[in-house]
Design a binder for these strands. Sequence first.
DNA 1: CGGGGCACTCAATGCGGTTTGGATGCTGGG
DNA 2: CCCAGCATCCAAACCGCATTGAGTGCCCCG
Lengths: 342, 342
Amino acid sequence: MNLKDLAQRLGLSPTTVSRALNGYPEVNEATRERVIAAAKEHNYHPNTRAIRLATGRAMAVGHVIAIANRHEIVNPVFADFIAGAGETYSRNDYDMVLSVVPDEEEAQTYRAMKVKGNVDGVIVHGPRENDPRIPLLREVGLPFVVHGRATGATEDYSWLDVNNRRAFQRATEHLLDLGHRRIALVNGLEFMDFAIRRRRGYVDALAARQIAPDPALMASDEMTEVAGFRAAHTMLDLPDPPTAFVAASMLSGMGVRRAVEGAGLKLGRDVSVIIFDDDLSYMKNGEDRPIFTAMRSSVREAGRLVAEMLLARIANPAAGEVQRLLEAELVEGMSTGPAPQR
Amino acid sequence: MNLKDLAQRLGLSPTTVSRALNGYPEVNEATRERVIAAAKEHNYHPNTRAIRLATGRAMAVGHVIAIANRHEIVNPVFADFIAGAGETYSRNDYDMVLSVVPDEEEAQTYRAMKVKGNVDGVIVHGPRENDPRIPLLREVGLPFVVHGRATGATEDYSWLDVNNRRAFQRATEHLLDLGHRRIALVNGLEFMDFAIRRRRGYVDALAARQIAPDPALMASDEMTEVAGFRAAHTMLDLPDPPTAFVAASMLSGMGVRRAVEGAGLKLGRDVSVIIFDDDLSYMKNGEDRPIFTAMRSSVREAGRLVAEMLLARIANPAAGEVQRLLEAELVEGMSTGPAPQR
DNA sequence: CGGGGCACTCAATGCGGTTTGGATGCTGGG
DNA sequence: CCCAGCATCCAAACCGCATTGAGTGCCCCG
């Protein structure tokens, strides 16, 4: 059952039927109702492929997941971010198309997307310092919104980010307020923009109390349980070990906890840990009483918002670029306490 | 740059250019090479929307992620599964379109996909007992492959699954061989098909050694850290606590570990734990020496294979349904040891 | 009563490819 | 020398919708 069939059955032209269904004003209300009723009766749905060709819009947005061969890792926050963005797309009748490509093919993928026209815009994930994707997408002419920011990018572009610097500054201050002085940072990989900002927040908070950052207390690695464990394990073996940790994620925090407990120490009493919590649905930080004290910000909510920003850009490309900064919230859990007396 | 432009520039008809690029035999090899060279030079990519309309194929497959409102959870294995499937799609020039919908709208979503024609087939995630999606998709006429199986489904359908029963049977046997007799099961939600099979494997292994399963040692909940902790914590408080656990996932295992260590016990000495490990890229079970002894099977590899099965079905719908059962591999880690002497 | 203007409808064209059904030229065998 | 047959190539139709530009009939006003 296509438009032509339906029009024939109604004794109308395809034009009129199309306009009736799409809410154009130049069609008699009585006719419109008759058309709508017939469409429902015959279960008519316009063919998506035809609409897309005729209108020149893809009604889809792309998410490119670049996989590096060396440390082949799928970001764990990805699933929740996608879920959030997907809600927005569903509400707006957009499709989400996911491309998984080796990272050396990423640029080529964006170019192909533009030329093939299978998406109207893209979301940029995990920006790095001076991220080349931003000038590339501008050049290619594909609307985009960045989840995060890219330090060093000179041009104006749309992004949504969590205030990572502030979050880590507050986390560190919180530990300082509890009397801790040897505070370690278990950071993510520091070519990622968010990790750079987090370190800055941590260093700034220490500096404000006249504490020089100790390189031995600053680790940077994948945000996995194993990496968290390794970093904390090494640091706890130092002659002057830390009494507190700021960890980049739930998983890192779990690794730190394993190292702490493995050393015969008790979390929240001997050693304090505060994490950044993306509030992942499958990795909830406890229920009523959080396991970890944390700086929390829902990545799923971020997904929803970023998608909305992109759809707005696609609908009205002439509008200016938009930026949005979210603040993480401090939640007190069972993993922090006053610094132990020497 | 479209087909017509390119043809004009080459002094050929669009027909010939199209055929040259699509490998049809009725075009001179010299001409074909000339066309291909020109296409590359002008960065010509056929417009996806036009191809889709003309061929009637979507060149895309759908993954529907149903979100239940009560326990609103995005499956953590999802990201890796998608990454695997995405590799297959990229290689075959297919798009992956992801729909995130509230679970009560799932049926409607499949119907809409068929009518709108934006996908050629779908992957079914997380099948349950007597899963209604299987008859639905058959009725709707959308090609599909199930990741997992649905106990109770009578019709013939294509699936790929891990031998969950066997994996849990072997895990339990391994613990029995180590001398354990009080063995607990920390299972996933038992309306999920895989969880049903896992329990069966566990019970079977016990039965083979004349051990009656103790309901107090069988928990069933979300596969999160918190749920794993709660279950293990309760069980370790029993008058006759378990000396070993079989846990459904890496996260569950971490929760169990926290409970074990919280009770002042040592993993691998006082209490043994063996997990099912999906080999997630962001949750590696250690490196050289695994943290947990585990039954391992890569969900990413499963994604690759399931996607291949679906593309094969789409290419040749007349071929019969295909089933494939993968075996999990036992890897010895640091979390198991001989049962402690009473 | 005539005509301007409004409300409504339609035929035709375009989107950018694929595919059908020839047309053309060339070759080789009878 | 003629023609069947093959190798190449092309014009035109088609996929299913949106949209442009043109009617058509009717009402209302002068």
